[in-house]
């Protein structure tokens, strides 16, 4: 099959994300990238874990003083739900339903923006309420680097999905852009994978003390 081919519902392949050579290469290359991202985030986690609660004096707040259950729970629900909505988008992509795919991608992006908004509020709150700034302690630096890096990934993912949606708005689905949508959704899931560890290791374990 060729990327330029005009396809219909009947001729759409079962795995459009892997039906051209370019798509196969994208798929393989992207998973290699995700393997590298795993190492990157693991080293940030390692840094955070070894610098957790390492503050210069007792005027600084510790993890258990600043984190709150409701905020983290809402953020987690937003991101987890956005992972499901992008699964729905890929389900419609496989059924050659372009409009439905775009709608679900749109919902994914909205949920992602909700998450990002909460994170910005959260960081702002820490800085102004607790004086927990990037340079205030080793603990704060490690915290903002890890969680901020994840936030930057969310930001990049939103830009990526939005760019794909705008660029292909009038094109409809073909074998050229289907792998692009698929890879972007893999990236979005990976962001959620990292968040599962962040809410567990940083927030929940932080609240335990």
């Amino acid at each position: 099959m060729q990327a330029e081919e005009k396809l219909t519902y009947e001729t759409w392949p079962a795995s459009p994300e892997k039906s051209t050579l370019e798509a196969k290469n994208k798929f393989l290359g992207f998973w290699l990238f995700l393997g590298g991202e795993t190492v990157l985030f693991a080293s940030l986690f390692a840094t955070y874990l070894s610098l957790k609660d390492k503050v210069p004096d007792s005027t600084h707040h510790l993890a258990k003083d600043i984190f709150s259950v409701p905020l983290t729970l809402v953020a987690t629900m937003l991101l987890l739900t956005s992972s499901l909505t992008s699964v729905y988008a890929m389900y419609h992509m496989k059924n050659f339903a372009f409009k439905k795919m775009m709608i679900w991608l749109g919902i994914t992006v909205l949920l992602g923006f909700g998450f990002l908004g909460l994170e910005i509020y959260e960081f702002n709150h820490y800085v102004h309420e607790y004086g927990h700034t990037f340079t205030s302690s080793a603990f704060a630096s490690a915290f903002y680097t890890l969680v901020g890096f994840h936030g930057a990934h969310v930001c990049f993912g939103l830009g990526w999905i939005l760019a794909l949606m705008i660029r292909n708005y009038k094109r409809g689905l073909n074998l050229y852009n289907a792998p692009k949508f698929y890879v972007a959704s893999l990236y979005w899931h990976f962001i959620d994978v990292v968040w599962v560890f962040i809410f567990t290791v940083v927030y929940l374990m932080g609240m335990v003390g």
Binding site: F27, L28, W31, L32, L34, G35, G36, E37, T38, V39, F41, A42, S43, F45, A46, T47, L49, S50, L51, K54
Partner: peptide, 26 residues
């Protein structure tokens, strides 16, 4: 191939976490 990439990454990551938390102390 994706499994190999991901599990290699995961293995390296776990070694890094282990090293930072046990061998290196502050």
């Amino acid at each position: 191939a994706p499994s190999m990439f991901l599990f290699t990454g995961l293995f390296l990551g776990l070694v890094i976490v282990l090293a930072f938390m046990t061998i290196i102390w502050w």
